[in-house]
Amino acid sequence: MPLSWLFGLLGGLMIGTAAALMLLGLGRIAGVSGLAARATGLADAGPPHTLAMAFILGLPLGGWLMARAMGGVSLSIPSTATLVVGGLLVGFGTRLGSGCTSGHGVCGMSRFSRRSILATVIFMASGIATVAFMRMAGL
């Protein structure tokens, strides 16, 4: 798509605005891994349950509305095995490392948090290495 960079930029602005709403409105970090864990009772600390649940329910709701407005979005789905392996690692890793692309990447880096900048550099590098390895191994 020739305009995909523009969609990327606009989508990014929406994501950042949503995170800014959480910060300035509710005083919270819009970290999806932490909010998901909190919403499902898998985190001991964090925002009130109902708050986390509302944000998490909003994600597919907003995605659905946007897909309708755009007349559908195309997704290519990976194999079930990669979904399971990827999901397990993403779940464990984000809890161990206290955040994911939203919490460390968007919220933490814009705060110039050393922890978040380090985490983001590492998970980017590790993701790049993983894709390169899978390409070499023909996976």
């Binding site: 897909a67 392996v85 690692l89 939203s102 590790s126 790049i128 290495a129 993983t130 894709v131």
Partner: peptide, 29 residues
């Protein structure tokens, strides 16, 4: 903890191409 967690998360992200936000959003897509 921070470093190990980021390494594991990155591997999972690379394997499936999904991180938590997009994955939960895709429940509708």
């Amino acid at each position: 903890r921070l470093i190990g967690g980021a390494v594991l998360f990155g591997i999972g992200w690379g394997v499936a191409g999904l991180c938590p936000g997009p994955a939960i959003t895709d429940l509708a897509l």
